[in-house]
Amino acid sequence: MSSNGQEGFERALELVPDIIISDIMMPVMDGITFYRKLKSDMRISHIPVILLTARTPKPTECYRNRLYGRLFGTTLFQR
């Protein structure tokens, strides 16, 4: 467990966990930056990541479009 995104990234490099569960809103490095940095490092890019948030729909939709829409397609999130 880490208290911020930078510490989480460093621990992921050190421990190479089976899965990462992270909040989008973190100090030092937010969850979106953390995710992109993790996926750009070949040593740990294979680790599945679950991003959680308590944000309201508008900001969450913005994050979804910046991150998931680009990676998995928007149809995954349409109701």
Score class of each variant (00 low, 15 high):
Arg64Ile: 14
Ile21Ala: 12
Asp18Glu: 01
Lys58Pro: 04
Arg79Trp: 06
Pro57Ala: 12
Ala54Phe: 11
Gly8Cys: 01
Thr56Val: 14
Met25Leu: 11
Leu38Phe: 04
Phe34Pro: 06
Pro57Glu: 15
Met25Phe: 12
Cys62Lys: 15
Ala54Ile: 04
Leu76Tyr: 08
Asp18Asn: 07
His46Ile: 07
Thr53Arg: 12
Val16Phe: 06
Ile20His: 10
Asp18Trp: 07
Pro48Leu: 05
Leu38Tyr: 03
Ala54Lys: 11
Ile19Pro: 11
Lys39Ile: 11
Tyr63Thr: 02
Tyr68Ser: 10
Met25Asp: 15
Leu71Asp: 08
Ile20Leu: 02
Gly73Trp: 00
Glu10Val: 01
Arg55Lys: 15
Leu13Arg: 13
Thr33Val: 13
Tyr63Ala: 15
Tyr68Asp: 04
Thr53Val: 07
Leu38Gln: 05
Leu15Thr: 10
Ala12Ile: 04
Arg70Lys: 15
Arg66Gln: 14
Thr60Asn: 13
Leu52Ser: 01
Ile32Phe: 13
Ser3Gln: 10
Thr33Cys: 12
Ile50Gly: 03
Arg43Asn: 14
Leu51Pro: 04
Thr60Trp: 07
Arg11Gly: 10
Thr60Ile: 14
Ile32Cys: 13
Thr74Ala: 08
His46Tyr: 01
Met26Cys: 11
Arg79Ala: 15
Lys39Arg: 07
Leu51Ala: 00
Lys39His: 03
Phe77Glu: 09
Glu7Lys: 00
Ile47Trp: 09
Pro48His: 10
Lys58Cys: 08
Val16Ala: 12
Pro59Thr: 14
Arg43Lys: 05
Lys37Gly: 07
Gly73Tyr: 02
Thr53Phe: 13
Arg11Val: 09
Ile19Val: 10
Met1Trp: 06
Tyr68Gly: 11
Leu71His: 06
Lys39Asp: 05
Lys58Asp: 15
Tyr35Phe: 14
Ile32Trp: 09
Met42Glu: 01
Arg66Leu: 11
Thr33His: 12
Phe77Asp: 09
Arg11Lys: 01
Thr75Pro: 05
Arg70Glu: 15
Thr60Glu: 15
Thr53Asn: 03
Val16Met: 08
Met29Thr: 02
Ile44Trp: 13
Phe77Lys: 03
Ile32Arg: 08
Ile19Arg: 03
Tyr35His: 07
